[in-house]
Amino acid sequence: MKCALVTGGSRGIGRAICLRLASDSEYHILINYQANQSAAEETLAEVQKLGRTGEILKFDVSDNDDTKSVLEKWQEANPDAVVEVIVNNAGITRDGLFMWMSHEDWSKVINTSLNGFYNVTNFFIQKMLRNKYGRIVNMVSVSGVKGTAGQTNYSAAKGALVGATKALAQEVAKRNITVNAVAPGFVRSDMTAELDEKELIKMIPANRFGEVEEVADLVGFLASKKAGYITGEIININGGIYS
């Protein structure tokens, strides 16, 4: 059984990626979530409607022990399963000016995006190297590429993930494993629901927010066999706001 794992796959961009992989590939979809079980179940139901199989895995990507224990149990229960695609999508924001930022708001954001990438990818990387095939896609952000005021923690986490993407890509390329990052700008989702869309659109050359499906289309391509010669890339998808 060949599988694709999407962290933070229950809502928003994560859900759209699960559905894109379900409709465009033969993969069994592993939907990771941390808190919202009903949203994860809805995503699974939509995956199944597309004629694909899937399952839900509950763990906190920022917690190494929790991640390891859930993934080890899953691997023991599915000894023949091979994870070929990892989409490191789980991320949180705790916005605020740096001078007032609590240590907790700094650590939580870094731990989810950056340590989450390590905890999940490190678990599977040796197996991918043995199989001589893999697609790793890291969800970063325009904030990680250009830096955004009020998001020093998020910019730091995503900027570090940009560096990690480029370095790991060089380590594993000979084994037919690609590592790329996708950097969305303003995309209509739960994470941007509180933002003043009318005001922000003035800054975006394309004159609109992106849709989660547009991001998922790009991720689906990078996760496919067609993208075998693209690695170590950070692909912006932001309507021209930073290009």
Rank of each mutant, 00 (worst) to 15 (best):
S243W: 05
V85E: 14
V179C: 00
W100Q: 14
D24Q: 13
I125P: 13
F98H: 14
E72M: 11
L71R: 06
F221R: 08
I56G: 00
V162A: 04
I92E: 03
H28S: 07
F124A: 11
L50V: 05
N131E: 14
V182A: 04
I29N: 04
I177G: 11
I92Q: 02
A22F: 04
A90G: 05
L21I: 12
G210D: 09
A216L: 06
K166L: 00
L71A: 10
I235W: 08
R208P: 10
R175M: 03
I125L: 15
A160N: 00
K73F: 02
A4V: 11
G147L: 00
D60R: 08
R94K: 14
R20W: 07
K68H: 15
A35P: 00
R188F: 05
K2N: 15
G210P: 10
T165M: 04
N78L: 06
D24Y: 04
K174V: 03
Q151M: 05
R130F: 14
G51L: 10
R135K: 15
R208I: 07
V162M: 01
I230T: 12
S143M: 02
F117L: 14
I29F: 06
A77G: 10
E214F: 06
A4K: 08
V83C: 13
E194R: 14
S69G: 05
I230W: 07
I110D: 02
L222M: 07
A164M: 11
R52I: 02
V120P: 09
Y133D: 11
Q48R: 12
V85R: 14
M99P: 04
P184T: 07
G144E: 02
A156M: 04
N32P: 03
T43L: 01
G144S: 02
V142Q: 10
E214S: 05
Y133W: 15
A173C: 00
V187S: 03
A81E: 04
N119R: 13
M101C: 14
D24M: 08
N236R: 13
S62Q: 12
V47A: 02
Y133F: 15
T165G: 03
G14W: 00
L5D: 09
R135W: 12
I241A: 05
V162P: 03
G116C: 12
G9W: 00
K198M: 07
D95M: 11
Y27M: 09
G91T: 05
K174G: 00
R94F: 06
A183C: 13
A157S: 07
A160T: 00
K49S: 13
I136Q: 09
D217Q: 13
I136V: 12
T152G: 09
E72L: 12
N111K: 15
V137R: 09
S38R: 12
L200T: 04
K73C: 06
L71M: 13
S143N: 05
N88V: 11
I86F: 07
N64D: 11
T192S: 12
Y154C: 03
L44W: 01
S107Q: 15
L168P: 01
F117I: 13
T53S: 06
I177F: 08
W100N: 15
F186T: 01
E72K: 13
M128K: 10
K158R: 02
N119S: 13
E55T: 00
S143I: 01
S224P: 08
N238A: 14
E199W: 06
D190C: 06
R11M: 10
E41I: 07
V137S: 09
A81R: 02
V145W: 01
I241L: 13
V145N: 01
K2M: 10
G220S: 09
K73Y: 06
L161P: 01
R175L: 03
